[in-house]
């Protein structure tokens, strides 16, 4: 249950934990673009060093980062191997008789797996060091300019926060209904597909009805307390922009310029 309240968030006190969610979000979005600037050994080296510094600053145990890699590790190895054997350029490095490994193949394979690794690590660090609710707060502020094109930013953030608040409750309820159905002999996680489809219905119907009921109660409670939409609303959790938030963004810009100049 604890897992569902915090998501992947691991509370901590590191430099990265203390950054403003806005700067972290901006940083990660920019990093996703900057990663693609690198195209030779020097630029990949700089990028890797930068990523390592961020990992060290976040004080996240490597175990958690590797854990996030599990679903893609196979894909990454596959990419690496595919490049090793399929790219036929440059001098031959290893000649096994029945196949040859070329320099360019090794290089491309390593580059692409490294790029992949860095993207996954950086986005993981964001969700590992920022609680879901602060990510929502950060997104709300960053999306504010889109209010001009009639995007309901405040309402979206409100829905996100309500969802986040009620996910554990809904999870409990789902669990309870599933157990109740299991006691009657239905099983959602095993058996032929036909039975599974049938088992979904008695799970969903009570979930929907109670969701609508709960929403009605919550909406009434909000109105009674004077909720009037986003206009002029004050905040309970205030975001504070510190000098270090500016510093990391400047560091990223400097690195981006460096990469752009050094790329081959």
């Amino acid at each position: 249950m604890e897992k569902m309240i915090f998501g992947r968030y691991i509370p901590g006190n590191s430099f990265v934990h203390k950054l403003d969610p806005r700067s972290k979000l901006l940083f990660v979005f920019a990093f996703i673009i900057v990663v693609f600037f690198a195209n030779n050994t020097l630029t990949y080296g700089i990028l890797l060093a930068f990523t390592l510094i961020v990992i060290l600053l976040s004080k996240i145990r490597l175990y958690f980062l590797i854990n996030g890699l599990k679903p893609v590790i196979f894909l990454m190895l596959f990419t690496l191997i595919l490049h090793l054997f399929m790219t036929r350029e440059g001098p031959v490095l290893v000649d096994l008789g029945f196949m040859k490994i070329y320099e360019e193949g090794l290089r491309q394979g390593v580059y692409i797996s490294m790029r992949f690794l860095m993207l996954v690590f950086m986005t993981s660090i964001l969700t590992l060091t920022t609680s879901p609710i602060s990510i929502t707060d950060g997104l709300e502020v960053l999306l504010n300019p889109f209010k001009k094109i009639k995007l309901p930013v405040h309402e979206l953030a409100l829905m996100m926060s309500i969802s986040l608040r009620f996910i554990p409750t809904l999870m409990d309820e789902t669990d309870k209904i599933m157990k109740a159905q299991m006691a009657r002999g239905s099983d959602l996680s095993a058996g032929p597909i036909k039975d599974r489809l049938k088992a979904v219905v008695p799970l969903l119907v009570p979930l929907f009805i109670s969701a609508f009921k709960r929403a009605e109660d919550l909406a009434t409670a909000m109105e009674v307390r004077g909720y009037r939409g986003g206009e002029g609303r004050t905040k309970y959790r205030l975001l504070k922009w510190h000098a270090k938030d500016t510093i990391i963004l400047v560091a990223l810009v400097i690195m981006a310029i460096l990469l752009w100049m050094l790329r081959g």
């Binding site: 829905m159 309500i162 969701a211």
Partner: peptide, 28 residues
């Protein structure tokens, strides 16, 4: 106005359910 607020909250609840159902996925 209150109907609008109610639908926002309902959408939030349904999104929560939807998210939980997404976690219960299975390959074919």
């Amino acid at each position: 106005r209150s109907l609008k607020l109610r639908s926002f909250v309902t959408i939030a609840m349904l999104s929560g359910i939807s998210f939980i159902l997404m976690l219960l996925n299975f390959p074919l």
